[in-house]
């Protein structure tokens, strides 16, 4: 693939890509840590996830600045323009994922203060799926691979199915004994946050398809237009 005649511009685009990936890696770590804090009952780790989020927030602002600067000074077109608009959108998804990891960590702090309720096996399964969704979405972004992104879109169905299973299990625990309600509700929030995380990964994947192919697959309406 040819590179830009203007090498400084080429570097600016490369730096932006690297910043997004670095931020994505931090978000992946935050999610993994928040779930590990639950499974290993490591409250200190949960608190660390909360603290580390400030760094993710800082990177969001930095990436926004980068995009604005390129838009103002370079007037990008074609695939560069699609890359910048994609970056502006997925940075918001990544930041939101960081917040969700913090939300999970907050619940984990409460949960770890009480005895464990039931097995966490399905929550771990849900967490693994959500993390894999994000990882694959980011890989698709790095490789500019729309078919890999398409796999992420398909993968969301399984996430939703596992979420529903966890939800029903927790409702069962609540019905069994009202003393379970507090912890089961907290776990339900954890599960919901994981399910939302996967939705944000789906958003990233949709934007990758737009970035590479220029077609908007986010909604049935825009999909229809794209197929015309």
């Amino acid at each position: 693939m040819p590179s830009h005649t203007d090498k400084i511009y080429e570097n600016e685009l490369r730096e932006l890509r690297e910043k997004l990936l670095a931020m994505g890696a931090k978000v992946e770590l935050a999610i993994a840590s928040s779930v590990r804090a639950l499974v290993e009952r490591d409250t200190a780790l949960a608190r660390k996830v909360e603290e580390d989020d400030t760094e993710i927030n800082r990177e969001e602002v930095d990436i926004d600045d980068c995009c604005r600067r390129i838009l103002a000074l370079r007037q990008p077109a074609g695939s560069d323009l699609r890359f910048i608009t994609t970056a502006l959108k997925i940075v918001t998804d990544l930041e939101r994922m960081g917040d969700l990891a913090v939300n999970i960590a907050e619940r984990v702090v409460d949960l770890n203060a009480a005895p464990q309720l039931g097995s966490y096996a399905d929550i771990v399964k849900l967490a693994d799926l959500a993390q894999a969704q994000l990882k694959h979405a980011l890989d698709a972004f790095v490789d500019g691979n729309p078919s890999a992104a398409q796999v992420v879109l398909k993968g969301d169905e399984l996430v939703d199915a596992v979420y529903l299973k966890v939800f029903n299990e927790l409702v069962g625990l609540m019905l069994e004994d009202s003393k379970n309600i507090r912890r089961a509700t907290a776990l339900m929030f954890v599960a919901k946050h994981l399910e939302r995380l996967a939705d944000h990964a789906t958003n990233v994947a949709e934007m990758v398809i737009y970035m590479v192919k220029g077609t908007d697959v986010r909604h049935p309406h825009s999909r229809g237009l794209a197929e015309e």
């Binding site: 040819p2 830009h4 077109a77 074609g78 695939s79 323009l81 699609r82």
Partner: peptide, 19 residues
């Protein structure tokens, strides 16, 4: 042409990848 050109040569030109 400026957001999603069909031809790679157009893409290279509008994104500044020529020469």
């Amino acid at each position: 042409i400026f957001t999603n050109p069909k031809e790679s040569r157009t893409e290279d030109y509008v994104t500044g990848k020529f020469g």
